[in-house]
Simulated scan of single mutants.
Amino acid sequence: MKDPVPGALILGASSGFGEAAALAFAEAGYDIYGVHLDRRAGLARVAEIKARIVEGGRRARFFNGNAASAKKRDRVLDEISGAAEPGSIRVLLHSLAFGTLRPFVDDDGAGMSPEQMNMTLDVMAHTLVYWTQGLLARGLMGEGGRVFAMTSSGGDRVIPSYGAVSAAKAALESHCRQLALELATRGITVNAIRAGVTDTPALRKIPGAEHMIDEAAAQNPHGRLGTPGDVARCMVALAAAGTDWMTGNTIRVDGGEDFVGSRPPAE
Rank of each mutant, 00 (worst) to 15 (best):
95 S>G: 01
96 L>V: 02
93 L>K: 03
93 L>W: 08
116 Q>S: 10
111 G>L: 08
126 H>W: 06
118 N>C: 10
165 V>Q: 05
166 S>P: 07
153 S>I: 15
126 H>N: 13
127 T>E: 11
115 E>I: 07
113 S>W: 01
108 D>F: 14
73 R>A: 00
130 Y>E: 06
140 L>E: 13
100 T>W: 02
116 Q>Y: 01
86 P>S: 08
165 V>G: 12
139 G>A: 06
89 I>Y: 07
94 H>L: 00
159 I>C: 07
69 S>F: 01
79 E>A: 12
91 V>D: 00
154 G>V: 13
120 T>C: 10
74 D>G: 12
107 D>R: 14
102 R>P: 07
84 A>W: 13
141 M>F: 09
149 A>D: 10
166 S>R: 01
123 V>H: 10
111 G>T: 06
116 Q>H: 09
111 G>D: 05
93 L>N: 06
95 S>A: 00
103 P>V: 01
168 A>F: 09
105 V>W: 04
144 G>N: 05
84 A>K: 09
68 A>G: 05
148 F>Y: 08
89 I>P: 07
169 K>C: 03
122 D>C: 03
78 D>R: 15
80 I>C: 12
131 W>I: 03
98 F>C: 00
112 M>D: 05
153 S>F: 15
137 A>S: 12
130 Y>P: 01
88 S>L: 01
129 V>W: 14
141 M>Q: 02
157 R>Y: 15
70 A>Y: 00
158 V>L: 11
162 Y>P: 12
114 P>H: 02
79 E>R: 14
140 L>K: 10
84 A>D: 04
148 F>C: 03
169 K>M: 07
75 R>K: 12
140 L>H: 10
108 D>N: 11
77 L>S: 07
167 A>Q: 14
153 S>W: 15
144 G>D: 06
86 P>M: 11
161 S>N: 15
103 P>E: 03
84 A>R: 08
137 A>R: 15
136 L>S: 06
76 V>T: 04
